[in-house]
Design a protein around this nucleic acid. Structure first.
Lengths: 248, 248
DNA sequence: CGCGCTGTTGAAACTTGTCAAAGTTTGTGG
DNA sequence: CCACAAACTTTGACAAGTTTCAACAGCGCG
């Protein structure tokens, strides 16, 4: 981590120009914005927000002020039921936008919590709406982001509704692998930021089952597990697991 | 059903003014549109589309042209996995909008099929985007509709991820009941438009389990089941089921 | 009026959850 | 920097819920 030694003014300037210089802006922003448009986007996206591991980005019930784009780090969202039951609805990494559920009632419907120290760009929603009315490509992009979330959720529903434990975990690992890969990280070796319990909650399994299936995968030579460090040894066979009847 | 005897021109006029006279426009449209704005909406919403039971409204992979608002009838959406497994992702009734998943890739990602003869308003998406850029309240409303779908999906994830069969079915019945009630129909007596298998697919259960739980509910005096006709006899106890550990 | 789709019910099998115990890692305070 | 506590992970044995397989009943459409 480079230490921040710059003067305050310089820091601010650096942060303000975030979007135009941000290396992952193709994930948040549409291609082909001209300089004027990019300038306006930069003005809307507020200062970065830093969260430490365990911090809440927002809680269910809180008023919607801003959406957040993950710049670095890793977070989870979870809905909490009246009786205290908790369901992790998603894990978020760099380039992804969180808070979309809050638009419906102008209140957040889930908690979003940092699983490691993270940096986020805060996007005041009211100003984003204004801007999307004026920049068609930005509007289109925003609609795509919302729709993508719906598609992702349908995928999770398929997983929860009709896959067995092994398939769920295989799907989960493949999905993580792809997301890391598309961000320039290794596709076959990565670090899990979440506990077995959080994985289990997301996949509709208990932590014990998650642990057991990891062990079984390891015994079968599909992956190598060292605590939270995962090394995928046989992607093809892992993929092959998905869509297979109970005992192949 | 009133028979259509009017001339073609008159019919068209009647259909064109659909939105401004539609009895459920508060479900599709924001409150407080002025006459000019309403006029513009009317022009964007194309002719109604009628589908018969079993018809596909669209199929996964088809290009996105329009979103559809359900005017009458009942439909289901389902994602189909490579291996042929099918997951019902939602049931749609009057006042609801379908097709939102397609915005992401400009292609539909699920099949949407009429479970009974239905009427839909076709909303060309490109023109809707234009209009939402010009009418802020319409834009806001559209964002809300997308966000509401995300919230709904998270609810289903909670259901699939952490509820037992009885809770799932109770939740399902309560949800249907509320949706019928908010549309002016009976909250405690209604007709299921879908098979046990479709309910099972939506809830991540087999059709046998759905059937068994219905029978158990009936034995316990919670509901009365006559094939697809449901009569809720004890809403309170049905609600109480949700959030209860295995054997209360 | 009968064939097929849909729904019900039973018994057995299987997957996953629950409970319990022990091992391991991580974080914190002395 | 070490030590201890807390949190996390693994593994086993057993219980429970759900699925699977199978047979039969019923309704509805042609």
């Amino acid at each position: 981590m480079p230490r921040r030694t710059s003067l305050r003014g310089i820091d601010l300037a650096q942060i303000r120009t975030a979007c135009s210089t941000c290396s992952l802006h193709e994930l948040c922003l549409p291609a082909g914005l001209d300089a004027t448009e990019m300038e306006r986007v930069d003005q809307v996206v507020k200062l970065r927000r830093r969260t430490k591991r365990g911090d809440y980005l927002y809680r269910a019930g809180a008023e919607l002020d801003s959406l957040f784009a993950v710049r670095s780090g890793f977070l989870k969202s979870c809905v909490v039921y009246e009786d205290g039951r908790e369901q992790v609805t998603g894990f978020h990494m760099m380039g992804e936008v969180v808070g979309l559920d809050a638009i419906s009632q102008e209140r957040h419907t889930c908690d979003t919590i940092a699983l490691e120290d993270s940096e986020l760009c805060e996007i005041p929603f009211a100003r984003l709406e204004e801007l999307t009315r004026e920049i068609a490509s930005l509007q289109r992009h925003f609609h795509r982001i919302m729709s993508r979330e719906i598609v992702r959720d349908h995928g999770v529903m398929l997983l929860l509704g009709s896959m067995r434990a092994e398939e769920r975990l295989a799907t989960f690992l493949i999905n993580l692998s792809q997301r890391f890969a598309s961000r320039g990280y290794s596709a076959h070796e990565f670090h899990l930021r979440m506990t077995r319990e959080e994985i289990g909650s997301y996949l509709g399994l208990t932590l014990e089952t998650v642990s057991r299936v990891f062990s079984r995968f390891q015994d079968d030579g599909l992956i190598e597990v060292n605590n939270r460090h995962i090394r995928i040894q046989d992607v093809a066979r892992l993929r092959g697991l998905v869509g297979q009847p109970p005992h192949e």
